[in-house]
Structure formats: C-alpha cells, structure tokens
C-alpha cells in the first residue's frame, strides 16, 4: 500500500527539450491532423509563434523520463494494482519547439477511500508544475493513481 507519510515528498526533476518532430508524432498517433500541430506556417496563421503542443503533450516528458515508475516504487505502491484514475492539466503559457521544460514531481496527496463494493483504495495525486528555460510557469499536470488493496 502507498506510504502515507510521503505526502509532500519531491523527486528528481523531469527535464524535456520540446522537438517539432515529437509534437507531430504525438498528434499523428492520436490521429489529430489539425494543421497547427503539423505545419509551422499554419500555426503562425492561427496566431501561434510556432507549432503548439497538443493538450495531452505533457504525458511525453512524464513517460519518457521514466520518473513515474521511480515514484511508484518509492511510495511502496504495488505496480500491478495501479490504475490511472484521473489526469488534469492547467495551461499558463504556450510550449513551443526548442523550449526546455522542467518540473519537480511532488506527492500532492494520498487518501484512502472505500469503493462501492467495499474495497479499500489509496488515491495518490502526483503534481508537476512545468517551467520553461526563461523561468516562466507554463503548465501544471496532476495525475491521480488509484492503488487497489
């Protein structure tokens, strides 16, 4: 079960250089052919400085950094019993190719809940606030992990 004493704990920062090719690749994998994600000129015509990132792009630094398995391990969560319960993003500024974004994963909360069927679960929220290379806060990501016990 999740170690409830670790609320507030912070982990090694996730740092990611945003590339145009990765933006296009993620959009294509979703099947989102909106030209703003694929064509710089189309993005500029619609008021962006460059190709912006799709709304769920911040899953990329999270997954490629392999940070989450380390967090799950440190919290003593049984990996086989974890479900991705919720995901939330807040957007404060644009993220463009060439930006280097970084965030410190932090355990925002751990709460025990009981499901309708009477099963106990730990609800673990991990929060990352991303800043860019100019120190501007660009986004916040919150992931809710549900560990069935």
């Amino acid at each position: 079960m999740a170690d409830h004493s670790k609320v507030g704990r912070e982990y090694a920062p996730v740092t990611w250089e945003v590339e145009r090719g990765k933006i296009r690749e993620l959009a294509k994998a979703i099947g989102d052919m909106n030209p703003i994600y694929h064509d710089r000129d189309a993005a500029v015509r619609e008021g962006y400085k460059e190709t912006p990132v799709p709304p769920t792009f911040l899953t990329v630094p999270m997954m490629w950094s392999t940070s989450m398995p380390g967090v799950i391990n440190d919290l003593g969560i049984n990996f086989m019993m974890v479900l991705h319960g919720e995901e939330e993003y807040e957007y404060y500024g644009e993220i463009y190719p060439g930006d280097v974004i970084t965030a410190v994963p932090r355990v925002a909360s751990i709460e025990e809940k009981t499901s309708k069927s009477g099963r106990k679960m730990d609800m673990v929220t991990i929060e990352l606030v991303y800043t860019n290379q100019r120190g501007e806060k660009v986004a916040r990501a919150r992931t809710l992990l549900v560990e069935r016990k």
């Binding site: 979703i30 909106n34 769920t56």
Partner: peptide, 21 residues
C-alpha cells in the same frame, strides 16, 4: 488525446486553460 482533439478542433488551442478527465 481524442478528447483533446475534439476540443481543439472547436476551440483554438491557445484559449484552453484547464482540461481534466
């Protein structure tokens, strides 16, 4: 991601402030 596609096909990406599922 599909939901994000639906949203930003309708509302320009730059106006999105929060998205939760």
């Amino acid at each position: 991601g599909f939901v994000g596609q639906a949203i930003t096909s309708w509302i320009p990406r730059k106006y999105l402030k929060r998205f939760q599922v």
